[in-house]
Design a protein around this nucleic acid. Structure first.
Length: 342
DNA sequence: AAATCGGGGAG
DNA sequence: CTCCCAGATTT
């Protein structure tokens, strides 16, 4: 009579064996430094390894430890996050570094409950760090867990439900082995390399004999996700005000998209319109996905008028070379390069 | 419980 | 074009 949870424990051990021979060779796999693992976990939230690998390497190279990161400026941390997206991660990672310096004397906390208190660290990340670095026993339940578990058990629980994390945390207990750190990483690699969202490579999967969805030929039906992600359109207007290679920028707030990144002025004072008789004005429009950006490209003709602009304290003055040292939204980054590189 | 936050790449 | 990715935070 099979009526207890121990029936599935061999799955976790099969996974560990597969992982011992198929683990991806990644830079953060060579360390148990909680700082490095932390950075890695934040960088790769909602981000593919191939997309974030350079950012991870550059980040830990410039900020090799908590103290270095805590003592850096927020703008420089954002610079190293340039192009990665979800910029609150960079702001939180910087706050958390200061938090570790002040609340934990600069020593990375080792307990799950303490790690969870760090800014930008949620249940997944706290579990990942504690299990990989401190032999913690919490499953690091992420999208890979949702996908692998829902397929293995042909479970149609809606992963877009707010209860999905608790549900699949519970479900993972059926197969979780003693070595939770390796198990968590094994689930990540399996989900990434084998049990992929589309076209999973089931013939190479160590769990294919145990996978209900595979035996039913229904892997494509799992996981179930009902909620659709709606992409609202966003229209932005900018003034690219420039003269002799210099141009105006300002820093965004932290309450909307592109938190604290730099951008062109979204408006200019009425007093400075119209710039003056001779200024050349171009209108550029760029679209990308749900984003529409219109740029009033104004070459200020007189030194006098330029001085009127630059005397406004609300603007920063920069040029192409200096702009490389700021983090701009990707579309504006591209615009600057196309506009001034020549 | 639901909305929001980026950008790149696969299909 | 749509969907997804080593999720967390805010409301």
């Amino acid at each position: 009579m099979k009526n207890n949870n121990s029936d599935f424990l061999h799955l976790g051990n099969k996974l560990l064996h597969w992982y011992s021979q198929n683990a991806r060779d990644l830079p953060f796999r060579k360390t148990r430094d909680p700082y490095k693992i932390w950075i890695c976990e934040i960088v790769f939230q909602q981000t593919r390894i191939s997309q974030g690998l350079n950012h991870y390497n550059n980040f830990v190279d410039r900020f090799p430890d908590v103290k270095t990161l805590a003592e850096a400026s927020e703008d420089e941390v954002l610079l190293y996050w340039k192009g990665l997206g979800y910029y609150s991660r960079a702001i939180n990672i910087h706050k958390a570094a200061k938090q570790i310096m002040s609340d934990y004397t600069g020593v990375f906390p080792s307990e799950y409950d303490e790690i969870l208190k760090l800014k930008g660290v949620g249940k997944y990340t706290a579990a990942a760090i504690s299990s990989i670095c401190f032999n913690g026993k919490m499953p690091a339940v992420d999208g890979n867990f949702y996908r692998v578990l829902s397929r293995v058990f042909a479970d149609d629980f809606d992963i877009s439900s707010s209860r999905a994390f608790a549900y699949f945390s519970e479900l993972s207990q059926l197969i979780i082995p003693d070595n939770v750190g390796d198990f968590n990483q094994a689930m990540m690699d399996l989900g990434s390399e084998i049990c992929k969202p589309r076209n999973p490579v089931c013939l190479e999967c160590p769990l294919n004999k145990d996978c209900l969805a595979f035996s039913l030929n229904k892997t494509h039906e799992f996981p179930v996700k009902t909620k659709k992600v709606k992409a609202e359109n966003l229209d932005l207007h900018y003034f690219f005000v420039h003269r002799n290679g210099k141009f105006l920028i300002q820093q965004r707030k932290d309450d909307f998209i592109w938190k604290k990144l730099f951008e062109f002025p979204a408006s200019i004072p009425e007093a400075l319109k119209p710039f003056n008789k001779g200024s050349k004005i171009l209108h550029h429009k760029l679209t990308h996905k749900n984003l529409t950006i219109e740029v009033n490209d104004i070459e200020v003709s007189s030194e006098e008028m330029w001085n009127d602009f630059t005397s406004k304290n609300e603007y920063l003055i920069t040029d192409f070379e200096s702009s490389l040292m700021r983090s701009f939204p990707k579309p504006l980054e591209n615009y600057i390069q196309n506009r001034l590189k020549k």
